[in-house]
Amino acid sequence: MQLTLQILANGLLLGGLYALLAVGLTLIFGVLRVVNFAHAEFMMLGMFGVYWVWRMTGLDPYLAVLVVTPLILLVGIVCDRLIIQRTIGAPEVTVVFATLGLSIFLQNAALMLWTADIRSVTTPYSAMVLTPFGLRVSVPMLISFAVAMLAAAGLWLFLSRTLYGKAVQAVAQNREAAALMGINVRRVYLWTFSVAVAAAGTMGGLIAPLFTVYPRVGMSYIVTVFVIVVLGGLGSVPGAVLAALLIGLIEAAAGFLFGAAWAELSYFLIFLAVLIARPQGFFGRRGAEVFAGR
């Protein structure tokens, strides 16, 4: 019983971290119809950003996130201007491989700048553990989880409650109609993409005190996040959050029961099964799977 609860707690905490990454990815897909293969590289940039700010100035990593996130936003704006905007309406091969190229580029840029060394951020509370009801919960994990959930909720409120968010949704539903209604579609793209990747940067910053930092760290997240986003229904924000928690649980449970390799294998198999049986995911609208097709 105790063990089950512990696994549940670990899984939920992990899932919460995935959620922030997944929400951005699903938004980019929902609005721009672009599968952003480079998404986790922005997370990697966020991790490195926080690492260097902490290393150079000794600033607390959680405060460093506040410095780093706007920087990632800037990188996102540049990438959107140079690459993403140009893929809109282009053939599928462009849409897929432009972001894949961006991913390889950013990974190797990081490799060149910061070498392949594995680095980690340590704080006085790195090893601190809370023990509610006899469960062991890492303090930095809890902080990161809380901030990630708050950021995801903020994004969701922004989309559903603000005028600008409504414009984003209008573009997601019908690009042409939104343009006719006077919505600046290009600007919606710009902000959706850069805010979503900035959120990925935030997530990176949040996990910097938890996990090691290295240039290829994004690789181990991106596919998991794809699994989450498809499970939740590409384009669905609440779907992404729920699926992230679910995948976190599956990963924790399968990892404990069968070992890490089987955990990975199990959710890829689930992923394939979902794609085949219900490609719109569990929360997506039917028909989304045929978008962006020729």
């Binding site: 599928e92 849409v95 596919v223 390799a261 992923f271 794609l275 978008f291 097709g293």
Partner: peptide, 22 residues
Amino acid sequence: TFRLRGPFFVLATLAFGIVVHI
């Protein structure tokens, strides 16, 4: 995968490749 279009096909093949790699 024949029914899957665009990014869904890409993701399905990607996942399949990773399963074999694992």
